[in-house]
C-alpha cells in the first residue's frame, strides 16, 4: 500500500493543481494576517473559508484523481498487489497531498507572523486538524462515489451534489425544521442532525475551541450545554474519526466485489 501511496503522492506533486491549492492558502493566510493584524480574527475568517472550501476541493480532487488514474489502476490490478491496497494507497495519496497543501499553505504565513508566541496557537491547530479531517472525509466520500459510477460525468455530478447538500442545503433544511418544530424539544434532534454532517460538526468543534458563544448558534449551544466544552470536543472529534473510517470501510467493501 505504501508503494502505491508513494506513487500517487508523487504523481500529484507534479500536478500544478496541488501548487495552485497550496498558493491559494498561502495567499489567503498572508492577506488575512498582515492586513487584519489579529490572529484570532484570522482564525475565525479562515474557519468560514475552510469548512466550505476544503470539502469542495477534497470532493473534486478525489473524483478527478480516481477517474484520471483509471489506466494506472488497471495496470496495478494485474500485478501481485492486494486490491484494497491499490485503492487505499491512491486515496491516501490524494488525501495526504491535499492536507499538506492546506497545512503548509496556512502554516507558513502563521508561523511567519509569530504564531508560536501567541495564545491562538491551539485555536489554529484545531483549525488545521478539522481541515485535515474534512479533507480525509470528503476525498473518501468522493472515492466511494467514483467507484460506484462508471460514468465520469455522472460521478462528478453526484460528487458536487453531495457537497452542495452537506455544505449548503443541509443547513437550510436543518434551520427550517428547527423553526417549524420550535414548540417541541429539539435538543436531541439537533445533536443527531449535527453529527450526521461532518461540516457542521467541524464548525462546532472549532467554535467550541474558540469559545465564542455568539457564533455557536443553536446547535453549538446545545452541544456545549449537553457535553460541556472539553467533552463536546472529544465527542465531535470521535464522530469525525468515524466519518473518516466508515467511508474507507465501504471503499474496501466495494472494491472486493467490483469488476474491472
Amino acid at each position: 500500500m505504501f508503494k502505491i501511496l508513494k506513487y500517487s503522492f508523487f504523481d500529484l506533486t507534479r500536478s500544478s493543481w496541488s501548487y495552485i491549492y497550496f498558493l491559494f492558502y498561502l495567499l489567503l493566510g498572508i492577506v488575512l494576517l498582515f492586513l487584519n493584524n489579529d490572529l484570532s480574527n484570522a482564525v475565525i475568517t479562515l474557519m468560514n473559508v475552510i469548512i466550505i472550501l476544503v470539502p469542495l476541493i477534497g470532493t473534486i480532487f478525489g473524483v478527478m484523481y480516481f477517474y484520471n488514474s483509471r489506466e494506472f489502476t488497471e495496470l496495478l490490478l494485474a500485478q501481485p498487489v492486494k486490491r484494497t491496497s491499490i485503492f487505499l494507497g491512491q486515496y491516501l495519496g490524494v488525501a495526504v497531498s491535499l492536507s499538506l497543501s492546506l497545512v503548509l499553505g496556512l502554516g507558513i504565513p502563521f508561523i511567519a507572523y509569530g504564531l508560536f508566541q501567541s495564545p491562538a496557537i491551539w485555536d489554529f491547530t484545531m483549525l488545521l486538524i478539522t481541515g485535515v479531517f474534512l479533507t480525509l472525509i470528503f476525498s473518501a466520500l468522493a472515492f466511494n462515489i467514483a467507484l460506484s459510477s462508471e460514468n465520469k460525468i455522472k460521478g462528478f455530478g453526484y460528487a458536487i451534489l453531495m457537497w452542495l447538500l452537506l455544505a449548503v442545503v443541509y443547513d437550510g433544511v436543518f434551520l427550517l425544521s428547527l423553526v417549524y418544530f420550535q414548540e417541541y424539544p429539539l435538543d436531541k434532534f439537533s445533536l443527531i442532525a449535527t453529527m450526521l454532517n461532518p461540516i457542521d460538526l467541524s464548525r462546532i468543534l472549532i467554535l467550541l475551541k474558540l469559545d465564542i458563544s455568539a457564533l455557536l448558534g443553536y446547535t453549538g449551544a446545545v452541544f456545549k450545554q449537553f457535553f460541556g466544552t472539553s467533552f463536546g470536543s472529544v465527542i465531535s472529534l470521535s464522530v469525525l474519526v468515524l466519518w473518516t473510517i466508515l467511508p474507507l470501510l465501504n471503499i474496501a467493501r466495494i472494491v472486493k466485489k467490483k469488476d474491472f
Binding site: D11, R14, S69, R70, E71, F72, E74, L75, A78, Q79, P80, V81, K82, R83
Partner: peptide, 20 residues
C-alpha cells in the same frame, strides 16, 4: 488471493499507461 499473480505475466488488450 492475490499472491498467485506473482506467477503470471499479463499483457492487457489496450496499453493504457499513466501518461505523465
Amino acid at each position: 488471493n492475490w499472491e498467485y499473480r506473482k506467477e503470471i505475466d499479463y499483457l492487457p488488450q489496450i496499453a493504457n499507461f499513466p501518461g505523465n
